[in-house]
């Protein structure tokens, strides 16, 4: 009797895994046909407004101080900024910390040369439908999303750099 009862919860465990919110992912529409959501957020030096970045290639990165892979992506973001900034790339790293202090503490340790914006309520992340931390979006000069990247994996940075390079040379 015990052994059969033991199986019951396991079955329920397994069944429960597949019940959840609808997944945000749905294929079909090519990413490059989507207009990037617009935003206007406080930055380190005044408002950061997406509309004013038209004409530039924009790399939007969503991050938070408590997110380890986000931290690890910063040196790479800096490298991209330094390498492609003169070729039309603007890196905008949108911070999603609830408390500004946590973000400021992190920024003190790592003073990024690229643009930082703050969105403690996460509305921009909602608009971009961020599925994981960090997430990044490469946007072309007309405001269309060229590609999206979820998470930060050193092994995939070459791929992303090639996309940036491609977008900047158009």
């Amino acid at each position: 009797m015990h052994s059969r009862l033991f199986l019951l919860p396991i079955t329920v465990l397994l069944a429960s895994l597949f019940i959840g919110p609808p997944n945000a992912s749905a294929g079909g529409v090519g990413a490059d046909t989507l207009a990037a959501p617009r935003f206007a957020l406080p930055g380190l030096h005044g408002l950061v407004v997406s509309d004013s970045l038209r004409g530039k290639v924009v790399y939007v990165d969503f991050w938070a101080s408590w997110c380890e892979p986000c931290r690890r992506s910063f040196p790479w973001l800096k490298a991209m900024h330094e390498k492609y900034g003169s070729k039309g790339l603007v890196v905008v790293a949108i911070n999603l910390d609830k408390e500004r202090r946590a973000a400021d503490d992190f920024l003190k340790k790592f003073t990024p040369p690229f643009t930082i914006a703050f969105d403690p309520e996460g509305k921009s992340a909602e608009a971009f439908d961020v599925s994981t931390m960090p997430s990044s979006f490469l946007i072309n000069p007309t405001g269309m999303i060229l590609s999206t990247h979820a998470g930060f994996d050193l092994k995939r940075t070459g791929e992303i750099e090639a996309e940036i390079q491609g977008a900047c040379s158009k």
């Binding site: 329920v12 429960s16 019940i19 938070a64």
Partner: peptide
């Protein structure tokens, strides 16, 4: 067993409707 079933029902249904967003996991 019953307690576990109740717990799992809670885990797998009602709560899922308000999924915690990735940026809310500080």
């Amino acid at each position: 067993g019953v307690a576990l079933l109740v717990a799992l029902a809670g885990l797998s249904t009602g709560c899922a409707a308000t999924a915690v967003k990735p940026w809310d996991r500080d």
